[in-house]
């Protein structure tokens, strides 16, 4: 399952390495926030990623599953 996460903020480089399994989209979306995507193994993994966003103080704007 691939998921896309759209954040309100732009992720600073120092925090990038907290998400080794996600890639950052370089396509301009018109927002200032980061767009991350990547493979999510299962529900606990997904919630783990959301927790990490929270731990680092990011606000999740949108989350969706990508067509495989």
């Amino acid at each position: 399952m691939r998921y896309e996460f759209i954040l309100v903020e732009h992720i600073p480089d120092v925090a990038r390495s907290a998400f080794p399994e996600l890639e950052e989209s370089t396509v301009a979306t018109g927002t200032t926030g980061s767009v991350m995507y990547g493979d999510v193994v299962d529900a606990p993994h997904l919630h783990g990623i959301l927790d990490r966003f929270q731990d680092l103080g990011f606000t999740l704007l949108e989350l969706r599953r990508l067509p495989d």
């Binding site: 600073p12 120092v14 925090a15």
Partner: peptide
């Protein structure tokens, strides 16, 4: 700064 506030401030 266009970075996340938390990241900017912690840095």
């Amino acid at each position: 700064s266009d970075r996340a506030m938390s990241g900017y401030l912690v840095e």
